[in-house]
């Protein structure tokens, strides 16, 4: 910063005047409290100081707030940057990042989560019927993670209908399905090749692997009694249906698209953002947007 002395002038700035009354008041309150545990006279001293502090402070700000005038010199200041710019070696367009210009709407993930969550209940119900002759077993098992008193529940108990079990399971399953659905909506555009394989096989297996390692901590009772074969089937059911619903939806344009030049948006000119195989000149708008993400 460089100051130009030739154009300086003197002005006055008003600032609050220094005062000891806040210090006096705070000391008074502190001594008042100290008096409660030490000596009455310290409390009385604290009370007197508090009253003095209040009165003194009052007259500091009424009828007019006390202030001091500080003369200042005002002048032109040159604000300088010490940054340096470096010429960079040209790199291949292939090494540039390509941000998506289209993605799924957030509602798509929610729809996918709901559909997948419903689909998942089918294998779970079949598992319950085959193994325990009741469709409620899987529901109650899921709910048992939230009820400490159900930790040692018998299979017969878990096979019965329990309204609180149904509500708890619905809440847990519904919330998890929504969150995973949102994840699908956000991540599927990142893996455009073979979306059904990604959504229906890879993601369910990955999720199952993560849950397998963590379920002992999250829900020990579920970990003890879960049937991993049927769990994987229900996960695949979720993934296939959720992935299908998500992929069926139309994509919306991202902020990256709005940053493209009008000619590109209108379809007259092809943008470099379209992909690495179609390099084109970077427009002025592109350069401006790059600046936000690139270092000096």
């Amino acid at each position: 910063m460089h100051i130009n002395q030739e154009h300086s002038r003197v002005e006055v700035v008003q600032l609050p005047s220094p005062t000891a009354w806040p210090l006096v008041l705070s000391l008074g309150i502190a001594l008042l409290c100290t008096g409660l545990v030490t000596n009455l006279f310290i409390g009385i001293l604290g009370l007197m100081l508090s009253i003095c502090g209040c009165v003194g402070w009052f007259f500091q700000v009424f009828p007019h707030e006390s202030h001091i005038d500080v003369p200042v010199q005002v002048g032109d200041v040159q604000v300088l940057s010490s940054r340096t710019l470096q010429d960079r070696l040209p790199v291949s367009e292939m090494h540039r990042k390509f941000l998506p210009i289209e993605t799924f709407h957030i509602g798509t993930g929610i729809k996918g989560g709901i559909a997948g969550g419903l689909a998942m209940t089918l294998p779970a119900a079949i598992f319950s019927l085959i193994k325990y002759h009741s469709i409620w077993y899987a529901t109650n098992l899921l709910a048992a993670g939230g009820f400490v008193s159900w930790a040692n529940a018998s299979d017969a108990f878990l096979s019965e209908f329990h309204m609180r079990g149904l509500l708890a399971a619905a809440a847990i399953h519904g919330l998890t399905s929504l969150l995973v659905g949102l994840l699908y909506g956000a991540m599927l555009p990142m893996y455009p090749r073979s979306p059904i394989v990604t959504a229906g096989l890879v993601a369910p297996l990955l999720f199952t692997g993560i849950l397998h390692s963590a379920l002992g901590i999250v829900s020990p009772i579920l970990n003890d009694r879960i049937d991993w074969f049927w769990f994987i089937i229900s996960q695949i059911a979720f993934g296939l249906v959720c992935g299908f619903v998500v992929n069926l939806s139309a994509k919306v344009r991202t902020a990256q698209f709005r940053a493209l030049p009008f000619a590109v948006r209108a379809g007259i000119h092809i943008s470099s953002d379209a992909g690495p195989q179609e390099p084109t000149e970077i427009s002025t708008t592109d350069q401006k947007n790059e600046k936000r993400d690139r270092p000096e």
Partner: peptide, 16 residues
């Protein structure tokens, strides 16, 4: 390549 971009702007000047 170094750059400096001086700008005239009234900001401050301290009296010592």
């Amino acid at each position: 390549m170094a750059t400096q971009s001086p700008v005239n702007a009234i900001l401050d000047e301290t009296t010592s």
